[in-house]
Simulated assay, not measured.
Amino acid sequence: MSQLLPIPRAPKNPTRPWTYDTNSGGPLDFDKTIYKTLMSTSRSLHKLVNKFEIPIRTGQAWEVKQGQICRILTVGGPQVGDLNLWNLHDPRERMWAAKTRQLQRSHISTFDRIWSTLPFLRPIVTILGDTLADYGIDEDSGRCHDLLGTRCDPYVNRLLTGQDFDFSCHSNLVRAVMPYKLTEFDVHDVLNVFQITGLNSDDRYFMKSCPAREGDYFEFFAEIDLLCALSTCPGGDLSQPLWGPGSEDADKNPLDVCNPLGVEVYDVDKKYLEGWKPPISPKYGGNHGITLKKWNN
């Protein structure tokens, strides 16, 4: 009996692909005038209020107040960083990687915004600067600053290798936010800063070596008061696989490709923020479509 081949299925009502429109005055569009001014002004015109380095294979949390600028930069060479964001005063509101992928794109850059979780749903940061913005799309369809994947964690590491490893990005972030009384349950899907990723021809997630050089940076404007946490990925620049084919090469050690990351926070002169308005949540009326009966005596 001959083998039957699957019959290609065509949609009953084929349509053109569509996306959420972030331009042309739609609900996702916003006035970029103030942001363009902030991008073009020298950081020396603003006040540096916090500066530190995060050593390799560790994490750190810090605060960025509404209206401040935060810069993440490579200080010793290429290095991937896993970033989490929360509302400083209510950690139930935090960055929503999946919705940001949907409303913005899977790899974000200048003028993209990171959105928060329901029921808040508002932009909590706007990207101001990205020295890797010209990386574009490479020959493997790889792009930079990834929202497709998530943080490395000790549970998957145990699953794939049978070994415990306590310096994954998940673990680093957990330790970083402990002083703020947050736990493992508060750590969430990340923005992989400086990381090149994509989907291959089999629709499988891939990672590539980080192209950043010393002095490259990724910078954002805080739309609300933020608690930020960043892990310096134990894979460093990801040129050496942490597991799978190639990870056992004796002449390669991921520690050799790990570098610290720097963080700078700036107070913005108020004259540059004239006309800026804090983000607001959609004015949804509640009840999620359920009409409740009135109480009758």
Score class of each variant (00 low, 15 high):
residue 199 L to W: 13
residue 153 D to R: 00
residue 262 G to W: 07
residue 113 R to E: 01
residue 297 N to C: 09
residue 66 Q to W: 05
residue 141 S to N: 14
residue 162 G to Q: 07
residue 273 L to N: 08
residue 269 D to K: 13
residue 168 S to Y: 02
residue 171 S to E: 04
residue 87 N to M: 06
residue 297 N to P: 08
residue 138 D to H: 06
residue 185 F to W: 05
residue 293 K to E: 13
residue 278 P to T: 06
residue 273 L to Y: 06
residue 202 D to R: 03
residue 107 H to K: 03
residue 280 I to S: 12
residue 122 R to W: 02
residue 123 P to Y: 13
residue 234 P to K: 01
residue 136 G to D: 07
residue 259 N to F: 06
residue 271 K to Y: 08
residue 95 M to I: 15
residue 225 D to V: 08
residue 230 L to T: 01
residue 236 G to Y: 03
residue 61 A to Q: 00
residue 73 L to A: 08
residue 178 M to K: 02
residue 172 N to L: 01
residue 214 E to R: 04
residue 31 D to I: 13
residue 123 P to N: 15
residue 249 D to F: 02
residue 259 N to C: 11
residue 46 H to W: 00
residue 51 K to W: 04
residue 211 P to A: 15
residue 165 F to N: 02
residue 65 K to A: 13
residue 83 L to T: 03
residue 53 E to G: 07
residue 79 Q to P: 02
residue 187 V to E: 00
residue 40 S to E: 15
residue 118 L to Y: 08
residue 101 R to K: 11
residue 17 P to N: 07
residue 251 D to T: 12
residue 157 N to M: 11
residue 96 W to M: 05
residue 94 R to Q: 06
residue 140 D to C: 09
residue 130 D to G: 05
residue 297 N to R: 14
residue 231 S to C: 01
residue 132 L to S: 09
residue 99 K to I: 14
residue 119 P to N: 13
residue 172 N to E: 06
residue 103 L to E: 09
residue 8 P to M: 09
residue 36 K to N: 14
residue 41 T to G: 02
residue 238 L to I: 10
residue 239 S to H: 13
residue 212 A to S: 15
residue 6 P to K: 15
residue 137 I to F: 00
residue 240 Q to I: 15
residue 249 D to S: 11
residue 111 F to Y: 05
residue 170 H to F: 10
residue 15 T to C: 09
residue 22 T to K: 12
residue 294 K to V: 11
residue 26 G to D: 12
residue 132 L to I: 11
residue 144 C to E: 07
residue 58 T to I: 01
residue 286 G to W: 09
residue 278 P to R: 02
residue 67 G to F: 02
